[in-house]
């Protein structure tokens, strides 16, 4: 069991999730600016036979 077993929980806003989401959001936006989604779309609309074990 945890050492803090009998201490009541504090309601405190955590910043870490917001920072994490912001960092990955920035990464995603960089990806969009280099037009990566068009490449993803191109890949996702073609059947990759070797990827599914055929061919």
């Amino acid at each position: 069991m945890m050492d803090t077993k009998k201490k009541p929980l504090k309601q405190k806003i955590r910043l870490a999730p917001f920072v994490t989401i912001f960092i990955f959001l920035v990464l995603g936006i960089i990806g969009i600016t280099v037009d990566e989604p068009s490449r993803v779309l191109e890949q996702a609309t073609q059947i990759c036979l070797s990827c599914i074990g055929i061919g």
């Binding site: 959001l25 990464l27 995603g28 960089i30 990806g31 969009i32 280099v34 990566e36």
Partner: peptide, 14 residues
Amino acid sequence: QLFFGLYVVGTMGV
């Protein structure tokens, strides 16, 4: 083309 997977990793990370 600078396709390093940032869009995909960014989406997964969000």
